[in-house]
Design a binder for these strands. Structure first.
Length: 603
DNA sequence: AGAGGTGGTG
DNA sequence: CATGCACCACCTCT
């Protein structure tokens, strides 16, 4: 790879005076493509500061001292929609520049997302060092990055050189990635992802408000229940253990640690003489012993307390009073988001004992508008297979599981089908859900309580009824194996590492690729629709001048926080835009989104 | 520190 | 022959 600069004699200028800033600005204004990076004292945009802003052209890097230069000097450059800004992990710099300088980056090329799009399924590490090494052969020393953490003194020359190289290297990386994106026909996907960056940036900056006292109340209740169950278990099994241990304060010590699988296994296998291979819920469920039931009860509460307890409240940001989770834009190889610190995509669904979701509340004077797609994956199946009867069912907005059951078992569809034939509907529902995962008869049988042969009969019946679904699924798995990748309708690819013929697990791995090859186009298409929706909604918020923000997304759901008096109108818009997001590629089956306005996170 | 088990979400 | 997709957090044990 030809570099346009000499890595041993980096072309950079350190800019720490207004006049130098002005001339650097003038010089950069001539460029159509600039690269951008920031060095900050930390990762949290609200509790750290920008030290350096680097802006590069292909043969020169300007390193601005953010503590001496007025950001406003750079604003017209960074906000110019005609200039392409190349960044590594643009979301981070977007948030920093927005929070500290009021600068809104646009027209973004994100090398991290580009690499992810180009290697989905193959590589998981998309650090600048890895990408630069791969595309230019130059190895970056990222150790210096750590030296910016909490820095209060003046930056040294080594730090400036490091900062300069980060933006210089982005040019050859960008050039190469752009060629590859075109070659792999991934430009459309890349443009979508790059458009989503600013939405994610704003979403993370906005965060969510949580009712801490209500949250704590739930945890306390759960702890009470857990402790009661735990004591009951300890008392019940104490006689089985020879050693009577006394606790520090006179009470009896626990006989075993209820969270320990080995100790639990020992309890069942050696003390209760009930052989179990694992302590998972599906196994304990079948154990006819009161202790098994108690442990399941204990587990249920312990899980909620440990995963969703105090740890989440510790994430409340001191500056904003809200929680700002990390959204990973291409968190899954299918194209889905993932979420962490904390993971707001796995908050339990609303229930009597654990109403966690109702603790998420909009700010004073605002409402939540929560919208999700209904039966999206089945609608995508209908669209991809072009099955007229499925499409018709969705056009009439029928319950899809009832409709498939009606077709499979030659019954008349009716609005009370679920009441009349609950078992038939359940069977169809399990097939519908299972088929997008490539499920087999064994698993289906387990789910509906019949043997594998009977279950296979149902599946045969299903595929006889929906021949084109079978054709599509077979073709999807074959294509994945033959091509080494699968694709969503907009062309998002997921690659597969093909096993060597000599691999002892060859068949197993191929079977797995076949299942992933069926699942990816469906799950990925859903993700694509949601991402288009995010972009459409974001633009619409601005266009309509709505006082609101996108705060959360969970795969087929988008949560907005909108000023009270505008919420109802926005709900209608949100529903329309989400359906439009799906119609980008759904040309046969109508998508459907449903929105509700409320004071808590619910749907 | 990392793996494995378990279990929460879509 | 065997066969459920995609994540992340917390726990224990090595």
């Amino acid at each position: 790879m030809n570099l346009e600069f000499d890595p041993t004699k980096l072309p950079y200028k350190f800019v720490d005076s207004p006049s130098d800033a002005k001339s650097a600005f003038e010089d950069l204004l001539k460029e159509e493509v600039i690269s951008v990076d920031t060095e900050c004292t930390g990762l949290d945009p609200y509790n750290s500061k920008i030290l350096l802003i680097q802006i590069g052209k292909k043969d020169m890097a300007y390193v601005f001292d953010a503590r001496k230069i007025d950001c406003d000097t750079l604003k017209p450059l960074l906000e110019d929609p005609k200039k392409l800004k190349v960044l590594q992990n643009a979301k981070f710099d977007y948030e920093m520049l927005k929070a500290h300088c009021g600068i809104t980056l646009n027209n973004i090329f994100d090398s991290m997302l580009a690499e992810r799009i180009l290697t989905c399924g193959l590589e998981r590490s998309n650090s600048l060092a890895a990408i630069a090494e791969k595309h230019t052969g130059l190895s970056l020393d990222k150790d210096i990055r750590k030296t910016f953490e909490g820095l209060i003194t003046q930056v040294n020359e080594q730090q400036v050189r490091y900062a300069a190289l980060d933006v210089l290297i982005l040019f050859p990386v960008f050039k190469r990635q752009w060629e590859l994106l075109q070659k792999e026909d991934l430009v459309k996907v890349a443009k979508l992802e790059f458009g989503v960056v600013r939405v994610v940036g704003e979403m993370e900056l906005k965060g969510l408000c949580i009712n801490s006292s209500k949250w704590r109340k739930i945890i306390r209740e759960l702890e009470k229940k857990r402790d009661e169950t735990a004591s009951k278990i300890q008392e019940t099994i104490r006689p089985l253990y020879k050693v009577q241990q006394m606790g520090l304060f006179g009470g009896s010590a626990d006989v075993l640690n209820l969270n320990s699988q080995p100790q639990l296994l020992d309890l069942f296998n050696n003390k209760l003489n009930i052989d179990i291979g694992s302590t998972g819920d599906s196994v304990l469920e079948t154990v006819k012993h009161p202790v098994a039931d108690l442990i399941r009860e204990y587990r249920g509460h312990e899980k909620l307390i440990s995963a969703f307890g105090e740890s989440i409240l510790e994430k409340v940001n001191k500056k904003t009073g809200r929680i700002h989770p990390d959204f990973q834009q291409i968190g899954a190889d299918t194209g889905r988001f993932s979420c962490s610190n904390p993971n707001f995509q796995q908050i339990p669904r609303e229930s009597e004992v654990a109403p966690f979701r109702s603790c998420f509340v909009p700010a004073e004077g605002y409402k939540y508008v929560v919208a999700d797609y209904s039966s999206m994956e089945m609608r995508i199946v209908a669209d991809l297979t072009g099955d007229e009867r499925l499409i018709k069912a969705f056009e009439k907005d029928w319950d899809v599981h009832s409709a498939t059951a009606a077709l499979m078992f030659n019954k008349e569809y009716s609005s009370d089908f679920k009441k009349k034939y609950p078992d038939l509907r359940q069977t169809s529902k399990n097939i519908n859900f299972g088929l997008v995962y490539g499920m087999g008869p064994g698993r289906l049988g387990m789910m509906i309580g019949v043997d594998a042969a009977t279950a296979k009969g149902y599946m045969d019946k299903y595929f006889e009824t929906f021949k084109n679904v079978k054709i599509w699924l077979d073709s999807a798995s074959k294509l994945a194996v033959r091509n080494g990748y699968s694709m969503t309708p907009i062309g998002r690819k997921r690659w597969y590492l093909m096993p060597d013929k000599s691999d002892p697990n060859y068949d197993k791995i191929i079977a797995s690729i076949e299942r992933q090859g069926k699942n990816h186009p469906i799950q990925g298409a859903n993700a694509d629709a949601t991402k288009y929706s995010l972009v459409f909604l974001f633009d619409r918020l601005k266009k309509e001048g709505v006082d609101g923000a996108i705060t959360h997304t969970v795969h087929d759901e988008i949560v907005c926080e909108v000023r009270e008096d505008q919420a109802n109108d926005w709900a209608k818009i949100q529903q329309e835009e989400m359906e439009r997001g799906a119609r980008v590629f759904m040309k046969h089956c109508p998508p459907k989104a449903q929105a509700v306005v409320g004071d808590v996170w619910e749907h």
